[in-house]
Design a protein around this nucleic acid. Structure first.
Lengths: 215, 215, 215, 215
DNA sequence: GATGAATGAGTCTTCATTCAT
DNA sequence: AATGAATGAAGACTCATTCAT
């Protein structure tokens, strides 16, 4: 399915970079509207108002644009989660802010998250990419649980990896249900609920006395 | 213009039922091996050792078999979650048993759950079917949370619907990660972790004194 | 297309004859409703409420029933045109009666005439059958023109064969337009018009004195 | 579900137009040789020496080429019947010239007329197209009959519409018998016969004194 | 570089006919 | 004799990708 992953043309000139970005945008918009499978290369080039040949001078294949888009999503997700968060409140406030940050980032790219799920079920290559995002996310959670255990806040009999997997999966699933499946979920109540479940699991007090731990 | 006869699933005879089941099994096995998209009708009929026409006398299309398989999955999932659970232990034991029951049912049909996710991302019709399963599952959780709140066990400021969505999503995601994505998760630790998170959220005591509430 | 025309099973027993006729009727009805091409053998056997196998024990193929039905049509057409006609009136009355007889016979079997035209354009074999009917019809006309010429009524410079072809074609086309294409034609006016054109061509007087010539 | 782009006849370039015409010619030739039903798209593309896809980038389906060919036939028929006719002779000469013009046009496109009849018996859409041609033809005849009646030449008790239907059908049937069915008809004798029948019906004198009426 | 016409392998689906029961 | 399940050849159509202009 994947083949030997020829790298798509780099496009040195600025004009080439623009064209490539334009195609990337078109591909994303069409994918988000029709889904990956129902999108034909013809749809993308029509949307970008270029010829078929142009598409293939920037990307090796339909899979290749998808790859590029997923790369962008991965990168954006990394950047988003690396953004600093206000530490002024207590640990629960901080946790809540972290969850809000995640939900915001997800909502903003909900269309591509839908495509990522499609791609995941279509090729092992894209599954790896998706797991890569998830592991990065879960790794940070695991570290924060370990930190809380070291401070004597979180119970020591909680397995950090499995708890991170459970809690992280919970948050991601909530985001998917809300922003991709458009389930009738109230954003604020859901954030409060997620924060509560998470806090109780790792033993965060309601008060603001405990020093914050960055997720 | 065309004749008016268009029947799939004609056979009421036992031979016809057998043939249909055989095709259904073949379809499931091939879907599980290759995924829905990479499966050709030719693969299914070859696996079932029948002619192309035979396939089309039991099913209207490739989509139609998928529909039938998903129907079976939905039905099986309903049945599984309706099975009685041992009530001899305390509430936590009971919750754990319920989670174990879910994980067992999921593991047993992991292949089809993978296909369900694929189908979900491919057609709105299958998405509805999947949400149907999930709502049934989440509805039961929501009711149990309400019951615990009425007994004064679960905190009243916990929104039952959103908590059910979060906790249910958490468990389903864990099952998916474990049995479909084959993430390196330890079954027992994960079950303990899920039980702990859930119990703490709804206020279940560690001891065995509280009367059980059926999920 | 036709192959070597194996004669379809003769059906010696009366039960067999009934079955065969029942199938023939079903085939005709379905052909008339759907047209030959859009009719599937499945439609015929469903209409006759018999199994596929039964069909093939009375007919060799789908073409074969069509052949049988066209044979019936040819035979019926021969019989109809051989029926005696009231000779009491003058020659024009007689001609008119003959045309009426033709139109009646055509109307009664309009559905099969439509099928005959379809079959004609589909296989040379059926074309021959159709021409056979037509030649029989035109031959009679030609003879009557010759007779009128011998009586000094019809002009001698009229070529009997070509006039018969023209006049016969005119009448057949009118029948087709009226009964198959359902063009908005008034039956009585059309019959009068055809009679007039024909009479003038062959010199029939308006009065009733000329002795009749049977077509 | 599918993309929204569905274009046939895209090419506005001269190359595209050429290709389309080449396919149209191939389709016509193959249809004329094998008949519409026995022609496969594969036959057409083989004859045109292009790939399958090329066919489908100019036409939506096998039906679609047929539609295009019939459109051409309709157009050509309109043009042909609109061509001026020599008025120097008497009314009979003029009528004869009109009939000759029709027969010439029919002979030239006999192959397509055969296909038109096939198409007619296959789909109501094509039947409409055929009737469209015929009505245009019969309408002109009807008008000329009315004109002759107004001049006191044609008998007033002749119904113009039904007479036009009868006479027009006669001529068309003669053309079909001659050029499509290849019946042993002598062209000149047939034209004389048709002219005679028609003339006598509408009362045209043999002499050249009556002023001509254009059909 | 850009274009879009051309390609053809790949799939689904139909239905006349056969034959085991 | 009757049945109807099974067959599989046949054919329409799609669309990612190539390449001549």
């Amino acid at each position: 399915m994947a083949g030997e992953t020829r790298m798509s043309q780099p496009a040195k000139t600025s004009r080439g970079r623009d064209r490539r970005n334009s195609l990337l945008d078109s591909a994303r918009e069409v994918f988000e509207e029709l889904g990956y499978f129902d999108t034909r290369v013809a749809d993308i080039v029509a949307h970008a108002k270029v010829g078929h040949g142009t598409f293939y001078s920037y990307f090796d294949s339909k899979d290749d644009v998808l790859r590029a888009l997923i790369d962008n999503l991965v990168e954006a997700t990394y950047s988003a989660s690396a953004m600093p968060i206000d530490h002024s409140g207590g640990p629960r406030d901080h946790l809540r802010a972290t969850i809000v940050q995640f939900m915001d980032a997800y909502r903003e790219r909900a269309g591509m998250h839908r495509i990522l799920v499609q791609a995941t079920s279509y090729s092992a290559e894209f599954l790896s990419r998706r797991l890569e995002i998830k592991e990065q996310f879960l790794g940070r959670i695991e570290q924060s649980i370990v930190a809380w255990q070291q401070r004597g806040v979180a119970p020591l009999d909680l397995d950090p990896f499995h708890a991170a997997t459970a809690l992280g999966g919970m948050v991601e699933d909530a985001a998917f249900a809300q922003y991709v499946l458009h389930q009738p979920i109230d954003e604020q109540i859901m954030i409060t609920t997620l924060t509560t479940i998470w806090s109780q699991t790792v033993g965060l007090p309601e008060s603001h006395s405990t020093p914050p731990v960055t997720i």
